[in-house]
């Protein structure tokens, strides 16, 4: 077990979005533009890191039976900090993401990493894991946001890249577009990863 390995696994091999399929709710809800995806990813990464560190440090103090409420309170604290700080310093983005910031609390990715990794490992591994998962989540959300923004608005990060000839596919930025994009991207990644799946493996 090395720190680098714990970090790197979140980027691809155990990517929270493409492999673990965790945190689907914010993913589907806010990735209609690249900047929304990026902001959501960074906010989630911050909470992952903060929650991971504190929960890892507290793992011997917290009684087993009440560990979930304890983890959730710690996570909710960091979410609220993120919420206030974004409202104060990035009000435009905060307005766009709206309700989905407080909802980071119930993102199963964060509680999942606290429960299954941070509280089972020393704190430096917890930091490494949280950073890896955070970066993995952020790039996945930004990537989906870019794709949906190109099709839905013809732009990337608000910069128009497609000319007047392009008719925006409104569906790409609607909720249905989230499912379509996610499904197609996931399918492509799975094909890339497995090379070719043989008939026998498909039941």
């Amino acid at each position: 077990m090395s720190l680098w390995k714990e970090f790197a696994k979140g980027l691809w091999d155990e990517n929270p979005v493409w492999v673990l399929l965790l945190g689907m709710c914010p993913l589907l809800a806010v990735t209609n533009t690249a900047v929304n995806g990026l902001a959501m990813g960074l906010a989630t990464a911050f909470v992952l890191l903060g929650g991971g560190i504190v929960n890892s440090l507290l793992k011997n103090v917290i009684p087993h039976k009440v560990r979930i409420p304890c983890y959730i309170v710690v996570i909710a604290t960091f979410v609220t900090i993120a919420d206030y700080v974004m409202a104060a310093y990035f009000p435009e983005v905060h307005k766009l993401l709206g309700l989905f910031i407080p909802l980071i609390v119930v993102n199963c990715l964060i509680l999942g990493r606290s429960e299954s990794f941070a509280t089972q490992n020393p704190v430096h591994y917890a930091i490494s894991d949280a950073l890896g998962m955070g970066v993995g989540f952020t790039w996945a959300l930004t990537f989906l946001g870019i794709i949906r923004e190109i099709f839905g608005f013809g732009s990337i990060f608000g910069v128009q890249v497609l000319g007047d000839w392009f008719t925006p596919w409104i569906i790409a930025v609607l909720p249905a577009g989230a499912f379509l994009t996610m499904g197609i991207v996931l399918a492509i990644f799975n094909v890339l990863k497995s090379g070719s799946t043989s008939e026998a493996e498909c039941h």
Partner: peptide, 16 residues
């Protein structure tokens, strides 16, 4: 433990 964590959380949030 739960009470202490809650109080700490509230303290931090008050400052933020």
């Amino acid at each position: 433990v739960l009470t202490i964590i809650m109080i700490l959380s509230a303290t931090v949030l008050t400052f933020v």
